[in-house]
Design a binder for these strands. Structure first.
Length: 271
DNA sequence: ATGATCTCCTGAGCGC
DNA sequence: TGCGCTCAGGAGATCA
């Protein structure tokens, strides 16, 4: 569910509130996520102060005062929300963290595809297996062109969604980026021109920036750290619009499946 | 190296 | 109202 703009929105909202707070209690109610929460998770968090909060790709990274990192990945349906002390428990509240100001940070995840762990700071790269962040200045036409030659036989859509190369893009935003860049999802990466790579890099920045400015896309589950919805779903040009008219040329938006994921594009606007 | 397929789960939406 | 089916923003494993 949450891709880079949603995770960024959560981090921007919660960071100023969480920075400096001490964790006074951790209640793991359901450790059975796709990767189980480690038995010592609560012990490694309790008593720690949150030094800062950041994001890499779709990972939330909370720096702890003992040098460790509290890693959060939201999977498809994960939510991290800050609530009042008296907040009542809801279904799928798997972890409840009490802070020194009395407020509670809750991890809720119906499908349990997310991940929570406390890791050593120097293990972050290995644990996230993540490439450059999609908003990094390192995402240039040259970078994309080089990677497209290295993975020449895959589709451009697969390449953009490969977290080991570019971290943060998921199915919604890749569909939107490809539309903006005028590139069809099934194009072979190795046949992208340098100009197309430049358009993809520029489209990535503009789409992600616009999505962050609107608090991300709330299709059904996503809410930010204060349970607010985003509004960027209203700006989607192609995602989930199969059969509807292209907002640019009026032609039909096509729906298909690429590497197992629902895919949307305009055959006239994308080549 | 890569795509297809399956898997982990629950819930929403749809046709009947 | 309810049943059964399909699909969903992620990502890792297996197989060809």
């Amino acid at each position: 569910m949450p891709e880079l703009p949603e995770v960024e929105t959560i981090v921007r909202g919660l960071e100023p509130v969480l920075r400096g707070r001490r964790i006074v209690a951790v209640d793991v109610r359901e450790p059975r996520l796709r990767t189980a929460i480690a038995p010592d998770f609560a012990a490694r968090l309790t008593g720690r102060r949150i030094a800062g909060m950041s994001r890499h790709g779709k990972f939330i990274l909370l720096a702890l005062d003992h040098g460790g990192i509290w890693l959060v990945h939201l999977g498809m349906t994960g939510r991290v929300t800050l609530g009042a002390p008296e907040r009542t428990a809801r279904p799928h509240d798997h972890v409840v963290v009490r802070l020194d100001d009395g407020r509670v940070l809750t991890y809720n995840d119906p499908r349990r595809f997310g991940r929570l762990a406390v890791i050593a700071a120097d293990a972050t790269a290995a644990e996230t297996a993540a490439g450059i962040d999609a908003l990094s200045p390192a995402l240039t036409a040259d970078f994309l062109h080089a990677r497209s030659r290295r993975h020449g036989r895959t589709t451009v859509k697969s390449l953009l969604m490969d977290q080991r190369e570019i971290a943060g893009l998921g199915n919604i935003y890749v569909n939107e980026i490809l539309f903006r860049a005028g590139v069809r999802p099934r194009r072979r990466a190795g046949r992208l021109t340098r100009a197309e790579c430049a358009r993809l890099a520029a489209a990535t920045r503009s789409i992600l920036g616009a999505a962050i400015a609107r608090g991300g896309s709330s299709i059904s589950d996503y809410r930010d750290g204060f349970e607010r919805s985003g509004s960027y779903q209203r700006r989607h040009q192609v995602y989930d619009r199969a059969g509807e008219p292209c907002r640019r040329c009026g032609g039909p938006v096509r729906g298909c499946v690429v590497t197992g994921r629902s895919t949307f594009y305009c055959a006239r606007c994308q080549r």
